[in-house]
Design a binder for these strands. Sequence first.
DNA 1: AACTTAACGGACCGATGGTCCGTTTATCAA
DNA 2: TTGATAAACGGACCATCGGTCCGTTAAGTT
Lengths: 187, 187
Amino acid sequence: MRADAVRNREAVLRAAGRLFDAADDPERVSMDDVAAAAGVGKGTLFRRFGDRAGLIRALYEERAERLYASLEPDPGRPAADAVGDLMSALLRFKIENRALARAFENAGGGPYTASGYDRLHSRLTGLMTEARGPDSADFLAHALLAGVRSDLVEHLGDWPEERLRAGMAALVRSVLSGGGSPGRPER
Amino acid sequence: MRADAVRNREAVLRAAGRLFDAADDPERVSMDDVAAAAGVGKGTLFRRFGDRAGLIRALYEERAERLYASLEPDPGRPAADAVGDLMSALLRFKIENRALARAFENAGGGPYTASGYDRLHSRLTGLMTEARGPDSADFLAHALLAGVRSDLVEHLGDWPEERLRAGMAALVRSVLSGGGSPGRPER
DNA sequence: AACTTAACGGACCGATGGTCCGTTTATCAA
DNA sequence: TTGATAAACGGACCATCGGTCCGTTAAGTT
């Protein structure tokens, strides 16, 4: 990649980051805004990132990468605790990046198109399988991740963070404890 | 309300319903499309429903109303079972109306602006409080509802419905069973 | 039948995502 | 250093879409 291309890519990501962080409603950050703030032509934006969703995804995953890195599996840590740690970190991340996260989760294709989602999901599935067996672990991992959807976090925006964390902890505990017998029909 | 107004309102809702049901990507159903399909001018659309989100909400809540009606509280039914029933019905509803539900949940303000959400949420909170006490019941109810977000259902679209239901049942069971001690600090 | 006024409808507007193409410039070989 | 090449640029341009406006129509009333 040419030197100026690299420079511009960086400038765009920085500018977009600033704009989204400052925005109340991420939908109202336009591509023109980003281009202007980055001091770059619109064509450059689209050539580099494909479309709006692409730009947002690139920015989001860049930040998420740092999160994932801080979550390297620790073989010594019990699986149940690891699940709690992960969800807790994820919750903090969503709070700190709520505007960007909202933009990302509403952009084309929803949250499930990001490579990061699959990583999180399979990691969680693994940990839960280890902690409580494989039954429905797959779905439960999805459910856990749904519990930190950015617009839910936003909706609960005026709860004291304490209460949010308590709720999250209760959810994790529930899901890990397994619940009653699985196969019993409803009657 | 004048007779023609009533007629047109109905025509619009029917047409919109058809279009969303047939759509792969609900974002691509335009207001012009709806107006044309309903045989009505665009002005009529906006005068009646305010904006796109308003139309979608009206349509969604109309259908949801039938769902809620079929879920009238039954004092004889144990709370835990009632939670299962509700989530199960909700899951079916989201599957049957996935395009519309996606349109609705992505339209202005997210899913939490609908009056229906609050009703469901407080109903669930009540049932869960009855079944397992009030601790974090509020948050857990939100989490349960997040588990049937339309784009998650869509993402899991190729799972056999059986598996989905099993997962949902496991989630409900977990959340109702309560999990371990709440206050214990992490390490 | 005459009148009032709610309702209509489609031309019109502004904003936005995305494209196109003539121009600039990084890179590299001679 | 210079000249050739193609990658990268940028902003005018386009299409679409949500939403508004206002002259026209027709429902309801007396």
